[in-house]
Amino acid sequence: MIGLSIWHILLFLLIVILLFGTSKIKNLGRDIGSAIKDFKESVKDNGKECIEEDNKIINLPLDNVQKISAEKK
């Protein structure tokens, strides 16, 4: 089992900061945040579209349904 202590994690973070620099890490965080925000908005918009489509289906005229039911009788 690999034992990771707080010192291992801090050393890893220090190496990452030295390699990439704080500006690149900040930009990466900003990019990930905006990607998550865009994903949440698209999921919310898709849900609204599904509800609108359901309402259109529910509000269809019943002429065709009445004709079909009359033909079955």
Rank of each mutant, 00 (worst) to 15 (best):
I51P: 00
A35S: 10
L62G: 07
D38F: 10
L10H: 09
G3A: 12
I2Y: 00
I32Y: 00
S69F: 01
I25W: 03
K73F: 02
G47T: 10
R30I: 12
I2G: 04
K26M: 05
I15L: 09
I58N: 00
I32P: 00
K72T: 08
L19M: 10
L18V: 04
S69C: 03
I58G: 00
K37L: 12
I17C: 10
G47W: 13
A35F: 10
D63M: 02
L18G: 10
K67W: 03
K73S: 06
I57P: 00
L62K: 09
V16C: 02
S5H: 03
I32G: 01
I25G: 01
I6F: 08
H8A: 04
E49L: 14
L60S: 07
L28G: 06
P61E: 02
F39T: 15
N27S: 05
S23G: 05
S5Y: 02
L14M: 12
L11M: 15
E49T: 14
I9Y: 10
K40W: 11
I15K: 11
A70D: 09
L19D: 11
S34M: 13
I15Y: 03
K73V: 00
L14R: 13
G47F: 12
E41F: 09
F39I: 13
S69D: 01
L10G: 06
K37G: 12
E52N: 03
I17A: 12
C50E: 15
N55L: 06
G29S: 04
I17T: 14
L28E: 06
E49R: 12
K26D: 08
C50F: 14
H8P: 01
F39A: 12
E49H: 13
Q66I: 09
I32V: 07
I51E: 02
K40I: 14
L11A: 15
D54P: 00
I17Y: 10
G47Q: 15
I25A: 02
P61W: 03
K72M: 11
N64Q: 07
L18I: 04
L60Y: 05
K40A: 15
K24P: 02
I32Q: 04
L11P: 06
I15M: 05
F12S: 11
A70H: 11
R30E: 08
K72Q: 12
V65H: 06
S42P: 15
D54L: 12
F20E: 06
L13S: 13
I2C: 02
I32C: 05
I6C: 12
E52G: 00
T22Q: 11
N27M: 03
M1Y: 04
F39W: 08
K24D: 04
